[in-house]
């Protein structure tokens, strides 16, 4: 049986993030640096969709001899994540014994995460907190690079903060990093980037890290609505057929496209599963023919002559 000489393998750095964040730029800086340090380097990325907000990753491998352009699974010595959920996506790539995980706590929530619009639904974004992860990897660091860069007066230097953080994991001198970085940034911003780079180093070296037990800053705070009112996603949609004049307003306006006119030209809920209970049809029907209520209340008003909109609204924050 042949043995795999894993000890002769190169150093592997995996840089991941979201399209448009600068993953390719960061990896080009590292690749150039490794090259100038005298190594054979392979830097592999798949772009094409990179600009359009998809998941982007770049493999950088350097050493005396590099074969595969991609990092074999479980052999990334350093995983640099420019976005929190992307970091978690690629964690299985990290070398389990010694791998270093450096993650920006920035959260970029994709449009896809807002697909469930039922009452009380929260964005479908990873809920795992940094403190749940960092102690379970060999070396784990989470930093808020954007905030660090903003503190220095230029939020756009966030990637350089991350490069500073990354530099602590690889044995190249800071000067050499800065020499390469200065060739990749506009000359006016060299000083800012220099500060940002050092900030990234300091954050990691001084352990000057954000309080990780707190959840990362979220665009949509995790509100307890879903758990507080589990029944509210059941929506009752009712129509008073004799009031409907078949004007089609509700059909066109429904954001979930769940209404239709039947043969009698009366609005019907054609796709009940898709209705989120947004009430737009109720608000906009010129003849007040539609009533939307959540499941809990529909029992109470059953049989009432003139159904009222829900009086108590457990989901409302106002």
């Amino acid at each position: 049986m042949l043995v795999n000489r894993a000890d002769s393998r190169p150093i592997n750095v995996l840089v991941v993030g979201v399209g448009g964040q600068g993953v390719i730029m960061v990896s080009k800086v590292l690749a150039q640096l490794c090259l100038e340090q005298g190594y054979e380097v392979k830097q592999s990325e798949v772009h094409g969709m990179a600009k359009r907000g998809g998941s982007v990753f770049s493999h950088i491998r350097f050493g005396a001899r590099v074969w595969s352009p991609t990092i074999p699974e479980g052999e990334a010595d350093v995983l640099l994540a420019m976005e929190w959920a992307e970091g978690l996506r690629w964690l299985p790539s990290l070398e389990p014994e010694r791998g270093i995980f450096i993650a920006d706590t920035r959260r970029i929530v994709p449009p896809f995460a807002f697909r469930n619009r039922r009452r009380g639904a929260d964005p479908a974004y990873i809920t795992t907190r940094p403190d749940e992860v960092l102690d379970r990897v060999a070396g784990g660091y989470a930093i808020d690079a954007t905030r660090e860069a903003e503190a220095l007066g230029n939020g756009r230097a966030a990637n350089t903060v991350l490069l500073g953080a990354l530099s602590t994991a690889l044995g190249f001198p800071a000067e050499d990093w800065l020499a390469v970085i200065s060739r990749f940034v506009p000359s006016k911003t060299i000083e800012t980037n220099r500060q940002a780079f050092h900030r990234g180093r300091t954050v990691i070296e001084a352990g000057d890290l954000p309080d990780l037990s707190a959840p990362p800053a979220a665009p949509a705070a995790a509100a307890p609505v879903a758990t507080a009112t589990p029944a509210t996603d059941r929506v009752t949609w009712r129509i008073e057929p004799s009031w409907c004049k078949g004007c089609n307003v509700c059909v066109t306006i429904c954001p979930e496209r769940c209404l239709a006119l039947d043969q009698r030209k009366v609005a019907v809920l054609a796709a009940p599963d898709a209705c989120t209970g947004c009430r737009l049809c109720e608000y906009l029907c010129p003849d007040l023919a539609i009533t939307v209520s959540d499941g809990a209340l529909s029992v109470a008003i059953e049989g009432a002559a003139s159904p009222q909109p829900a009086a108590a609204d457990p989901g409302s924050r106002r």
Binding site: F114, R117, R119, P123, A220, A221, D313, S316, R317, R318
Partner: peptide
């Protein structure tokens, strides 16, 4: 972070 009638 705001809600209206149970929706974001």
């Amino acid at each position: 972070d705001g809600w209206h009638d149970g929706h974001h």
